[in-house]
């Protein structure tokens, strides 16, 4: 039984069957990659997991509870954090504030009217945020405005914002899309570092085979909205079905 169990999920947009009977099981403390050609339904599936879309049928269970019908912030409070394709950060706020906000969210829940307290006096939250920033080597940039960071640092900051919540599951939506090779390698190193330091389950959607084979322990191949195989990376490489659906494209 995995921490995330997707069973028989269907999603249809008008005449297009985006997801057809998707089953997926992500085991605890593993890195699970979902790959597939363009339009395979990877992002649709991810959006179903975080509450942005509601599947037409099927079930999505996280940690024994259904996530269907819940809002994104409720799902986050259950322990799922999400990293976006382009880093989504609070660009107008300082780096430290960016990390303090998830700390407040974890401590105070989805809403609290803490209007008469002072941020400066929240020493616990600040220490927590600073420790996290030190962990991703960004402590010296804590007073910078987040929009002035380099793209790689923005990605790092977004990871820090997710990790400081100690999520049970970290979802990554093409974390290296549009990156140069050097940046991609940095991201891979960062993710490996994160994985080495803590127990965390990651579910990663990726196009780049280099990234997938460097990180993943299990791989699910999605094609035309249906999972073809779920295997270890070694077995995926030579799998005939995968070749046909995915790698085959390149050989034609």
């Amino acid at each position: 039984m995995g921490i995330l169990e997707v069973k028989g999920v269907n999603k249809r947009f008008g005449g297009l069957q985006a997801l057809g009977d998707v089953n997926l099981s992500v085991r605890e403390n593993t890195v699970h990659a979902i790959i597939g050609p363009n339009g395979a339904g990877k992002s649709t599936l991810l959006n179903c997991l975080v509450g942005k879309l509601i599947p037409d049928s099927g079930s999505v269970m996280f940690d024994g509870q259904s996530v269907l019908g819940r809002k994104p912030h409720e799902i986050n409070q259950m322990g799922i954090s999400r990293v976006f394709q382009t880093p989504e950060i609070f660009a107008d706020l300082s780096v430290l504030e960016n990390v303090m906000i998830p700390c407040f969210a974890r401590r105070d829940g989805a809403f609290r009217l803490h209007a008469y307290e002072t941020v400066r006096k929240e020493a616990d939250i600040r220490e927590q945020a600073e420790a996290m920033l030190a962990d991703v080597n960004m402590l010296d940039k804590r007073n910078m405005i987040a929009s002035s960071l380099s793209r790689g640092d923005k990605r790092r900051l977004e990871m820090a914002m997710c990790l400081v919540q100690s999520p049970k599951l970290l979802l990554l939506d093409e974390p290296t899309a549009g990156m140069a090779r050097a940046d991609t390698n940095n991201t891979i190193d960062l993710l490996k570092e994160i994985k080495a330091k803590r127990d965390i389950t990651m579910c990663i959607i990726e196009h780049d085979m280099h990234v997938v084979f460097s990180l993943a322990e299990r791989i699910t191949v999605l094609a035309q909205g249906t999972p073809l195989v779920e295997e270890t990376p070694e077995n995926i490489k030579g799998h005939p079905k995968v070749r046909e659906a995915y790698l085959g494209e390149a050989q034609v």
Partner: peptide, 11 residues
């Protein structure tokens, strides 16, 4: 600054 990120941060 970013309502999307806010919602995905549990707020």
């Amino acid at each position: 600054s970013n309502q999307q990120r806010m919602n995905y941060t549990g707020l």
